[in-house]
Design a binder for these strands. Sequence first.
DNA 1: AGGTATGTTAATTG
DNA 2: GCAATTAACATACC
Length: 260
Amino acid sequence: MPELPDVETFRRYVDATALRRRIVDVEVLSRRVLAGVSSRRLRQVLRGATFNRTRRHGKHLFVDTNGSQWLVLHFGMTGYLDYGKERTRGPHDRVIFVFAKKCSLAYVCPRLFGRVTLTASVEEFVEMKKLGPDAMSVSAEGFACCLCGSKATVKSSLMNQRLIAGVGNLYSDEILFQSQVHPLFRSDRLSVAQATQIHRDMRKVLRRATERKADPMQLPGSYLLPHRRIGGSCPRCSGKLARRTVAGRTAYWCPACQKT
DNA sequence: AGGTATGTTAATTG
DNA sequence: GCAATTAACATACC
């Protein structure tokens, strides 16, 4: 799941379920998802604390734990959160934050590509990971700056978390479809008008997707994602969509609507 | 069985 | 150094 709209949805989910509740225990069921923190330290820092507030930068979710540490959650390709009272444990639960009254929040990650850690500062973490500005917060000028310095294809640049944080394979396809820009177009050859358009469409697409709880199939029929499958047709011109590996991922686009 | 998958990163190649 | 490609990670689905 997790591109920016998914992680923003998870952030709101934590806000709605787990804020200000005393953490009575932390169960680490898979050490593999811990990055640079031991289960003992995670438990020691979180036990007795509360989740105070949440932040998001790109695909990373941060939860202020009351003291000097933030819990950092990244979801890989298949991670998500599941809150419940007396919830039954699933096979892919990796870390469980246990609250009072048998309530708990599970970090579930079937493929184990996600990571959980702690950081003293969100800004330091972002700098350490060399993440670019958040896709929903970056200004048009900042966005153009990030893209136009890259010789990579525009799809690759959009997905490069060091340039812009938050856009992945699915939404990069959607953004370029909206802007009618070909995914293989070189970033540094975009006109100012094109970069401005892509910036506007990026924010529009991510906002829309977040409104729809990050379910790509719930996007309007005029969007690419509901049609993004083998044999799918362009909602604008009805032509067959093109499909090819770009930047190591499967890209879909309309060869008629998205020129060069 | 083999191909595919919403992510990241290291190694390799041009 | 940059960019593209490939493999690797671990699992599920068609």
